[in-house]
Nucleic acid binder design. Sequence first.
DNA 1: TTTGCGGCTGTAA
DNA 2: CTTACAGCCGCAA
Length: 102
Amino acid sequence: MLLSNIPQGRLTTYGQLAKLMGYPGAARWVGRTLSQLPEDTQLPWHRVIAAGGRLSLPANTPAGDEQRQRLRSEGIFVQGDRVKLRDYEWQPNAVSQNKVCF
DNA sequence: TTTGCGGCTGTAA
DNA sequence: CTTACAGCCGCAA
């Protein structure tokens, strides 16, 4: 469980996650997977963004707005489709790094 | 089983 | 900012 370990106010990228889960380079896979998550999921999917601190979900979409709202409520400054990744970047915890899954 | 295509990407030009 | 291309995975043909 990696995604579920991301603390509030922290961010990570698809590529990062993929790498941490043992699928380096499979960022797209992560993204697609997240997009298939149930609506009542408990995972902090909104803390997963594209590289460089970009929100790949466009505003004006249910998911996009939802994400922005949640991020802002966690104290993250979101401007358009950008955030200051440098300030919120999440450094993985070298703990129970099993394989795979959220 | 192999091939092709598309996706919440990533990096370089 | 806009291509272009590289990988990787899942799914359908």
